[in-house]
Nucleic acid binder design. Structure first.
Lengths: 113, 113
DNA sequence: TGATATGGTCGATGTTTATCGAACACTGTA
DNA sequence: TACAGTGTTCGATAAACATCGACCATATCA
């Protein structure tokens, strides 16, 4: 993680388009991340601790998309990168959307195996 | 329109997955259709009357996706195919989602030009 | 019957994107 | 310093999918 990369993890977009939000939420792996994140206190889950059927390269990609969409926030804690669901912020911008995602039952493919 | 095709336009799916709903709503052209449809009484708009930046082949494809997702219903009226937004049904299945789409401002690209 | 209008189907094309392995960067520890 | 653990970046690949032109089917009207 370079200094440049680290600074980007803290910055979250001021205004996210509906298109970006729907794209972010349109992937089942990313929805699994959101559900798993919603079930834990803030800043307790590192990226590598999620139960996902993809390699760490793909995993890193999905976290970047969620970050760009304003759905999560990240903070470096030693070698790991801890996550927080930006629930109130996202709810204010897109009321009801996150509730739909979190209400979705987890599949065999993505998480809760 | 064959008899087979016509019967399919009336049938709408009993249970739509969140994935299908998000896919359907993830395209800007389809969101433009939904917004335009929401601004008119039921069964007053034929497929060809929508202001869309695509050819009729693509248009027909988008209407089929919306139908499969349970977002619209279609009925043949002579040579045209009239549409109805299945708003109460969709709202009951995915509360808040359609509201987000309809609240989105129309772009230059898709509709309300 | 022919002409016109509406809409669907088919095959091809281009773009987007999810995915992976490999290499790299950083942190913490022995 | 060396090593192990965590996460990102890069290049390549494959699968979806939005798009189009061309053709087909149906309905209405002259």
């Amino acid at each position: 993680m370079s200094a440049r990369t680290r600074s980007l993890t803290h910055a979250h977009p001021t205004e996210v388009s509906l298109q970006d939000a729907l794209d972010a939420v349109g992937d089942p792996v990313r929805r699994a991340i959101l559900r798993e994140l919603a079930g834990a206190p803030d800043w307790t889950r590192a990226c590598g601790t999620f139960d996902l059927p993809v390699t760490k390269a793909t995993r890193s990609h999905h976290f970047a998309v969620l970050r760009a969409a304003g759905l999560i926030e990240q903070r470096d804690e030693g070698p790991r990168r801890l996550n927080r669901l930006r629930r109130p912020e996202f709810d204010r911008r897109f009321p009801g959307l996150l509730d739909l995602i979190l209400a979705e039952p987890a599949t065999d493919q993505c998480g809760s195996a």
